[in-house]
Design a protein around this nucleic acid. Structure first.
Length: 360
DNA sequence: TACTCGTGGCG
DNA sequence: TCGCCAAGAGT
């Protein structure tokens, strides 16, 4: 009955104990008593708002619930509906997104809002149509279709992958196992309450079937779980080893205007790393020795004693910071006063630079 | 397919 | 301290 460890294929029928209504019924019964109350989540009996569901799903991509809680409320207060968002300048959306990371999400969010608004303001209600919108991939399309529109489709995020890999004791490592895990999940989706089912799986993954310490003793679906039965749930899902992170070096020039303490910032190119966000002018970031760079304006440039370090997803960065108080002059960029830097759209790495320089 | 793309928290 | 992890998508 248990799926053997070497099983990679999914053409075999799902074992009866892990298929059909039993799993979903047990999970939903648990969810009815244990569901988290979250700002974007409709209360029982409430009709979900597709705009809020969509916004929350984008914001939650690779981002913790804890972080999103406050940011979601802030964002919704500024952009309460899809038309407000569509009509807002991209720069204001990026500024509000600053610090959240993965800024392509904000660019795609804005582009998606414009598409939806241009077609009347209603989000499509099928996985296929949703997945055609910018920033909406397989997971998010499923989540919106299920949560906002009740479609009986799977929403397979990292939580669900983990739960399913354990339930089935799947030996195939991620990311190769993703399509298999999607099919295994879809096979369990109930005809009714598909949105609750999706959210229940995520609550289960977040609260009980946690990455390093699953508490199978409190799990409502442990009796359906091969990993719980074998006592090795924590060893799933298997994953392929990740590549080592290289270190890049660079220089950042903090120009402080004598007159009022304003600092010189520039807008980065619209795509790529930190695309569209504001930056402190500086050198390129390269592996090996720090590249030389010309300051953005003349001045008495002095290096700080302490370098600024920041880790991105795929590389570590060490920035040497040089500071100068400079006279007012026409520079390629914008002068921002310290009091308003939190509204300028400065990503975290450059906020670290400004803190090191004593600007904020 | 494999790589790019942020940030903060935690064991 | 440091790798792992968090409601992934685009290319």
């Amino acid at each position: 009955m248990a799926v053997v460890d070497s099983e990679f294929t999914l053409d075999l029928p799902v074992p009866a104990s892990r298929s059909g209504a039993g799993f979903a019924t047990a999970l939903l019964a648990w969810y009815d008593g244990a569901r988290r109350r979250l700002p974007w989540r409709a209360e029982p009996g409430e009709k979900p708002d597709p705009y809020r569901v969509w916004l929350s799903e984008i914001m939650l991509q690779q981002t913790t619930v804890e972080t999103v809680m406050d940011r979601f409320r802030r964002f919704l207060a500024l952009f309460p509906d899809v038309f407000t968002l569509a009509n807002a300048p991209l720069e204001s959306v990026l500024a509000e997104w600053a610090g959240l990371g993965y800024y392509a999400r904000a660019r795609n969010l804005h582009a998606c809002a414009r598409e939806v608004a241009a077609k009347g303001g209603r989000f499509p209600d099928t996985v296929e149509a949703l997945a055609r919108l910018p920033g909406i991939g397989d997971y998010t399309a499923g989540a919106i279709a299920a949560i906002a529109f009740g479609r009986p489709v799977a929403a397979v995020d990292g939580n669900v992958e983990r739960v399913m890999a354990r339930v089935h004791r799947l030996a195939d490592p991620l990311p190769h196992a993703k399509p298999a895990l999607r099919r295994l999940t879809q096979a369990l989706v109930p005809a009714e309450r598909a949105g609750d089912f999706a959210q229940a799986l995520m609550d289960l993954g977040a609260g009980i079937c946690q990455p390093k310490m699953p508490t199978c003793g409190r799990c409502p679906v442990a009796r359906f779980c091969a990993g719980a039965a074998a006592g090795d749930a924590a060893s799933y899902p298997r994953k392929v080893a990740k590549a080592a992170r290289p270190t890049r070096h660079g220089i950042a020039h903090v120009a402080i205007r004598d007159r009022d303490g304003a600092v010189l910032l520039r807008r980065r190119p619209p795509k790529g790393l930190l695309g569209g966000m504001m930056e402190v002018p500086g050198s390129e970031w390269r592996e090996g020795a720090a590249p030389s760079s010309t300051p953005p304006c003349p001045g008495d440039w002095r290096p700080l004693n302490v370098a600024v370090e920041h880790t991105f997803t795929h590389f570590h960065l060490i920035l040497t910071v040089e500071v100068a108080r400079v006279a007012d002059f026409a520079a390629a960029g914008e002068w921002h006063r310290p009091a308003h830097l939190d509204q300028a759209g400065v990503p975290t790495v450059f906020m670290k630079v400004l803190r090191a320089a004593g600007v904020v």
